[in-house]
């Protein structure tokens, strides 16, 4: 019999994988901070308990406690006691527009264009294959993920991310899906910066409907085109935002 692979989860597994020996509390704090900022760990989500986290990360409970104290101080998590208590990802922890702008500003224009090209290419390809391969039940499942008008921007971003992840899964390729998980963890929070604008959300809602309709119709070309058009128009806004941030950052120096 062929060798049996027994991989654990990669996306989440990477967050909770055992750490090395040195500077552990700082490492735990840094890893969780990145996961919260990028939305991998979502607002309102309960973290595993301290002993569970310690077991998952391969560190002492006291190390986890130290890291959580740091996260609390930064306002990224909140802790409540008693039944139903625990440590939760704080509201707005991921939707810090300033932090997002800062990340965007630290990136070169060339890097942003490079990442945007990869993002559009991969997701448009996913939409095309999803149109070929999805059945009616799966289309219904996609619809159930759609954000609603009144959702706050954080919930909106998560819903949009999960929609694209589900579209990726419809390719029936685990590798492609893992690539998309990685892209989203790396770049997804930047790609969704424009959702802070309600007009963009409204426009995106139309694009979502149209994308799902093309997938339901099994129209490969239309699904690809729809995904491309939507993602490009959103990413153009990201590029413009980056240019503004770069201008703003340069100004104090040019004034002096």
């Amino acid at each position: 019999m062929t060798e049996i692979r027994r991989h654990g989860s990669r996306a989440r597994g990477a967050i909770f994988a055992p750490l090395g020996d040195v500077g552990r509390a700082g490492q735990v704090e840094q890893r969780l901070t990145e996961a919260i900022r990028s939305g991998v760990l979502a607002e309102g989500e309960r973290l595993p308990s301290e002993p569970e986290l310690a077991a998952m990360l391969g560190v002492a409970v006291v190390t986890v406690r130290e890291a959580l104290t740091g996260l609390r101080a930064e306002g990224l998590v909140t802790t409540s006691r008693g039944r139903g208590g625990g440590t939760f990802i704080a509201a707005g922890a991921d939707a810090d527009e300033e932090a997002l702008a800062e990340r965007l500003g630290s990136m070169s224009r060339a890097e942003l264009q490079d990442r945007a090209t990869q993002y559009v290419l991969v997701l448009a390809g996913c939409a095309e294959l999803a149109a070929e391969r999805a059945d009616g039940d799966e289309v219904t499942a996609l619809r159930s993920l759609l954000p609603t008008e009144g959702d706050p921007v954080g919930a909106w971003r998560h819903a949009d991310a999960e929609l694209w992840l589900s579209v990726a899964a419809l390719t029936q390729s685990a590798r492609v899906t893992r690539d998309v998980v990685r892209l989203e963890a790396d770049f997804g929070s930047l790609a969704r910066i424009p959702f802070a604008d309600p007009d963009v959300r409204e426009q995106t809602a139309h694009h979502h409907d149209r994308l799902i309709a093309t997938i339901a119709a099994g129209d490969l070309e239309a699904a690809r085109q729809c995904a491309r058009t939507h993602l490009q128009s959103t990413l153009e806004r990201v590029v413009r935002t980056q240019a503004d941030v770069h201008d703003r950052n340069r100004m104090p120096r040019s004034a002096s």
Partner: peptide, 11 residues
Amino acid sequence: AERGVPIGHHV
């Protein structure tokens, strides 16, 4: 234990 979707919804 408890899982969240890797980049998804709250729960």
